[in-house]
């Protein structure tokens, strides 16, 4: 009996150590990613990553080892959580607008990092016009530095589709940037 108790305690300890290692390894990329997907809303990004890690923790058993599948799972779930947040936020905002309250609960506006380059800032601002799926591939490729194959592994789409999605996203950004620049020139 004592042995069983000790083993359960040891298993719990191992489990916690494993979880901590995962958090240490993944918190930065996930927070970076979520922050961008959520249009630089740091607090929401923390919420999202916390929710993801709680989900992971519920399923984490001692003896599990972080591998490529874990990375895919984490990024996929983070994205889904973030999209849920964006939708919830949009609903809340609609409600706020309806009630005529000028509540600043919109995404963005909570944190602005000073960027040296004006054009860089504009392009990054334009990111929020992209659909979440497009934003996902852009961020995974350019922020997380993943290859098309890795992105396909996370999104569950084919490599060709990922390439196409990314191309369409960049085209759309280019059009938007040009439009804004022309608008500013006028």
């Amino acid at each position: 009996m004592i042995r069983a108790t000790q083993e359960i305690a040891a298993a719990s300890f191992r489990r916690q150590a494993g979880m901590e290692a995962v958090i240490d390894a993944y918190q930065e990329p996930l927070l970076r990613y979520a922050t961008r997907v959520l249009n630089h809303n740091v607090a929401q990004a923390q919420d999202v990553v916390q929710n993801v890690l709680i989900k992971l923790c519920q399923q984490w058993q001692p003896g599990m080892q972080p591998d490529a599948r874990l990375k895919n799972w984490l990024f996929r779930v983070t994205h889904n959580e973030a999209v849920d947040q964006i939708r919830a936020e949009a609903r809340r905002r609609r409600l706020c607008d309806k009630q005529g309250q000028a509540l600043d609960c919109a995404t963005g506006g909570l944190h602005h990092d000073p960027l040296p380059d004006e054009r860089e800032r504009m392009v990054l601002e334009c990111l929020d016009i992209l659909a979440p799926a497009q934003r996902q591939v852009v961020l995974l490729r350019l922020q997380q530095g993943m290859s098309y194959e890795e992105i396909a592994g996370i999104t569950g789409q084919s490599v060709g589709y990922v390439g196409n999605l990314l191309h369409v996203a960049v085209r759309r950004l280019a059009v938007e940037v040009r439009r804004r620049e022309e608008g500013r020139a006028k």
Partner: peptide, 20 residues
């Protein structure tokens, strides 16, 4: 003209080390 600033801007994210 879009990809370059986008990549540069997003790569700068990596300098930040956000912690939970």
């Amino acid at each position: 003209s879009v990809l370059q600033p986008l990549a540069a801007g997003l790569a700068r994210d990596r300098d930040a080390h956000p912690r939970l």
